[in-house]
Measured scan of single mutants.
Amino acid sequence: PDFTLHWNGITIHFKGIDEEQFRHLRELLDRGVSLEELEELAKELIK
């Protein structure tokens, strides 16, 4: 499924991740993950 997340004025689209992965990403963003960390995470998910 696809998810869209609005965070700090940025709209991020996640394609092909499951709800569990999306929930994990939201928790990280709510905790204050940096954009660099988010990019690293995205690379991991894409593999």
Results as ranks from 00 to 15, higher is better:
22 F>Q: 06
1 P>S: 13
24 H>G: 06
7 W>R: 05
27 E>L: 09
34 S>K: 05
34 S>D: 07
31 R>I: 09
42 A>H: 09
39 E>N: 07
29 L>T: 02
16 G>F: 08
1 P>L: 14
28 L>C: 00
45 L>A: 07
10 I>D: 05
37 E>W: 06
29 L>M: 09
29 L>F: 14
2 D>P: 11
37 E>L: 07
28 L>K: 05
19 E>V: 10
16 G>D: 13
3 F>M: 06
3 F>P: 01
16 G>W: 06
20 E>P: 06
20 E>K: 13
22 F>C: 05
25 L>R: 00
11 T>A: 08
11 T>C: 05
24 H>F: 12
24 H>N: 10
23 R>K: 14
7 W>P: 00
7 W>F: 13
26 R>N: 10
42 A>W: 15
26 R>H: 10
8 N>W: 06
5 L>I: 12
41 L>H: 04
1 P>H: 13
32 G>F: 08
4 T>K: 10
43 K>E: 15
44 E>M: 03
10 I>H: 12
34 S>F: 05
21 Q>N: 08
22 F>D: 01
31 R>S: 14
47 K>S: 15
26 R>G: 07
44 E>N: 03
23 R>Y: 11
31 R>C: 02
9 G>Q: 04
12 I>K: 05
39 E>Y: 13
8 N>E: 11
33 V>T: 12
27 E>I: 05
14 F>S: 00
19 E>G: 09
41 L>Q: 04
43 K>C: 05
13 H>C: 12
47 K>H: 15
25 L>G: 00
34 S>Q: 04
3 F>E: 01
28 L>I: 09
47 K>W: 15
1 P>F: 14
34 S>A: 07
16 G>S: 05
4 T>P: 01
17 I>Q: 02
3 F>W: 10
22 F>T: 03
29 L>E: 00
11 T>D: 08
2 D>C: 01
19 E>I: 09
33 V>Y: 12
28 L>N: 03
15 K>L: 11
9 G>K: 02
32 G>E: 04
15 K>F: 13
1 P>M: 15
32 G>M: 07
46 I>L: 14
24 H>V: 13
27 E>C: 15
46 I>D: 15
43 K>D: 13
37 E>T: 09
5 L>A: 02
33 V>I: 13
39 E>T: 09
19 E>T: 08
30 D>C: 01
11 T>N: 05
28 L>V: 07
45 L>F: 15
38 L>F: 10
31 R>L: 12
25 L>A: 01
38 L>R: 00
17 I>D: 02
34 S>C: 01
6 H>F: 07
18 D>T: 15
27 E>Q: 09
9 G>Y: 03
28 L>T: 05
20 E>I: 11
35 L>K: 06
30 D>E: 12
10 I>Q: 13
10 I>N: 09
31 R>E: 09
17 I>W: 05
42 A>V: 15
45 L>C: 07
27 E>A: 10
16 G>A: 04
37 E>R: 09
9 G>D: 06
33 V>Q: 03
36 E>C: 02
40 E>T: 06
10 I>F: 06
40 E>C: 03
7 W>N: 05
45 L>E: 03
8 N>G: 07
17 I>N: 02
38 L>P: 00
42 A>T: 02
44 E>Y: 02
20 E>S: 08
24 H>A: 14
42 A>E: 03
12 I>N: 01
20 E>T: 11
18 D>F: 05
14 F>R: 00
43 K>G: 07
46 I>C: 04
23 R>A: 11
5 L>Y: 04
8 N>L: 08
47 K>E: 15
39 E>L: 13
3 F>D: 01
34 S>R: 04
31 R>H: 10
46 I>M: 09
19 E>K: 09
44 E>L: 05
12 I>S: 01
24 H>L: 14
35 L>W: 10
32 G>I: 09
18 D>N: 15
16 G>H: 07
16 G>M: 05
44 E>T: 03
19 E>N: 09
9 G>V: 01
21 Q>S: 14
17 I>G: 02
32 G>W: 06
5 L>S: 00
40 E>P: 00
29 L>K: 03
26 R>Q: 13
41 L>G: 01
33 V>P: 06
40 E>L: 07
44 E>A: 04
18 D>V: 05
36 E>D: 11
30 D>G: 12
46 I>W: 06
4 T>V: 13
11 T>M: 09
13 H>F: 07
1 P>V: 15
13 H>Y: 10
18 D>R: 05
9 G>S: 04
36 E>F: 07
37 E>P: 00
17 I>K: 01
4 T>M: 11
20 E>H: 14
2 D>M: 14
14 F>Q: 00
17 I>R: 01
22 F>G: 11
32 G>R: 01
45 L>K: 01
18 D>M: 06
38 L>M: 05
47 K>N: 15
38 L>Q: 00
6 H>A: 08
32 G>Y: 06
24 H>W: 11
32 G>S: 05
16 G>C: 04
26 R>Y: 11
38 L>Y: 01
6 H>P: 01
36 E>G: 08
26 R>I: 14
30 D>P: 01
29 L>A: 13
10 I>M: 10
29 L>C: 07
33 V>C: 03
41 L>E: 04
36 E>R: 10
42 A>D: 01
30 D>T: 09
16 G>R: 03
28 L>S: 08
10 I>C: 06
30 D>I: 12
13 H>P: 02
1 P>W: 15
21 Q>T: 13
41 L>D: 01
2 D>R: 02
46 I>G: 10
33 V>N: 03
7 W>A: 12
38 L>I: 15
17 I>A: 03
23 R>H: 14
31 R>T: 13
2 D>G: 14
4 T>G: 03
6 H>E: 12
39 E>I: 15
22 F>N: 01
21 Q>F: 13
3 F>Y: 12
13 H>A: 10
47 K>A: 15
45 L>R: 00
11 T>Q: 09
15 K>S: 15
43 K>N: 11
17 I>E: 02
4 T>N: 06
36 E>H: 10
37 E>S: 05
23 R>V: 11
43 K>S: 08
46 I>T: 04
46 I>K: 02
8 N>Q: 11
40 E>K: 09
39 E>P: 02
43 K>R: 11
6 H>S: 14
7 W>L: 13
19 E>H: 11
32 G>A: 07
41 L>Y: 13
5 L>D: 01
16 G>N: 08
30 D>K: 08
25 L>F: 08
12 I>A: 04
29 L>R: 04
9 G>E: 05
31 R>Y: 10
17 I>M: 08
36 E>T: 08
31 R>F: 09
47 K>R: 06
47 K>L: 15
8 N>A: 11
38 L>E: 00
3 F>T: 02
45 L>H: 02
46 I>F: 10
46 I>R: 03
